[in-house]
């Protein structure tokens, strides 16, 4: 096998990076490359086996910096586009990247159904609790009282807790990471990608420009062992309510929940046949 650094280099592009200097999105990119390179070097997948779908937002700029197949889609729709890629070829390993705004505001309908379909793909949400690319308006995960140009009196609504939503939606693999802990994030991503069916990885990603009040929670974070007990997962999910100023809960990192359920390609004869042949519809 090629040297892992060589593989990682091949996973990059020559595009000029437009993230703000120091943005933790750089670390997420690094974790993704590390995870993919790990899998490629072990011979589990080829570089061509991966396909990403991205949203619109700072997070989704990752499309330009990753040298794998993919679609730079519409805001809120990365998951729907990714689902389609798995329908078109169940042998592709699909990674869908989204911001919290795209995933939990514009596109939440797709998230609510992802666990049901259980397509073999990984959703990676860069959660910075703000619409950053459009200059910091509140999203569904912003804390109550968040003051932005669009909410000068403070955001009036409580935040959604994505982990609880994911559990309620029946998603079979739920993990949370800290962008700054990129080694741990890479390990979790490797697990998520190898999970059969839909996996959701939320990455807490401080934005250096907008909603800075929620940043720097690292001292409240702790790592958990892989958990597959639903009750325990619910308890872990309840520890932190994303309402930074109000709650002071601990923030668990790691695989909060995992469960083996039939993947989309196992439920459809047509897809099962393609999976067995190792091809998409094109043949």
């Amino acid at each position: 096998m090629d040297d892992i650094n060589e593989i990682k280099k091949n996973l990059g592009t020559k595009e000029v990076n437009t993230w703000c200097p120091g943005c933790p999105n750089f670390l997420i990119l690094e974790s993704v490359k590390t995870a993919l390179a790990g899998l490629i070097s072990k011979g589990v997948y080829r570089q061509e086996d991966f396909a990403m779908t991205t949203d619109i937002g700072c997070s989704s700029k990752i499309y330009d910096y990753l040298n794998i197949s993919g679609i730079y889609g519409l805001h809120g729709r990365s998951l729907a586009t990714g689902l389609g890629v798995t329908l078109g070829n169940p042998n592709l390993k699909v990674l869908s990247f989204m911001g919290d705004g795209g995933c939990f505001d514009e596109g939440i309908a797709h998230f609510m159904h992802a666990g049901r379909y259980n397509a073999d793909m990984t959703l990676i949400v860069h959660d910075n609790q703000s619409f950053s690319l459009t200059t910091g308006q509140p999203t569904a995960t912003s804390q109550e009282g968040y003051i932005s140009k669009a909410s000068p009196l403070g955001d009036a609504d409580f935040p959604l807790n994505p982990i609880k939503v994911a559990l309620a939606a029946g998603i079979g693999f739920i993990a949370r990471c800290n962008a700054r802990d990129f080694k741990h994030t890479a390990e979790i991503l490797e697990k998520a990608i190898q999970h059969k069916g839909f996996s959701y990885v939320e990455i807490i990603q401080d934005c250096l420009i907008f909603n800075k009040n929620v940043n720097n929670k690292d001292d409240r974070m702790y790592k958990i062992e892989n958990n597959s007990d639903k009750k325990k997962a619910e308890k872990i999910a309840g520890e932190y309510d994303y309402n930074n100023g109000h709650g002071k809960g601990k923030i668990a990192l790691g695989v909060i929940y995992s469960e083996d359920k039939p993947a989309l390609y196992e439920k459809w004869e047509q897809l099962k046949a393609l999976k067995e042949k190792g091809v998409g519809w094109k043949g």
């Binding site: 779908t53 729907a80 586009t81 689902l83 389609g84 329908l87 078109g88 070829n89 309908a109």
Partner: peptide, 20 residues
């Protein structure tokens, strides 16, 4: 799928992957 928005976006994903 869940909505017409999911229909058109997933169709693009599928077609991209080579499905008619």
């Amino acid at each position: 799928p869940e909505t017409e928005i999911a229909v058109v976006n997933s169709a693009m994903g599928a077609s991209f992957a080579g499905a008619k």
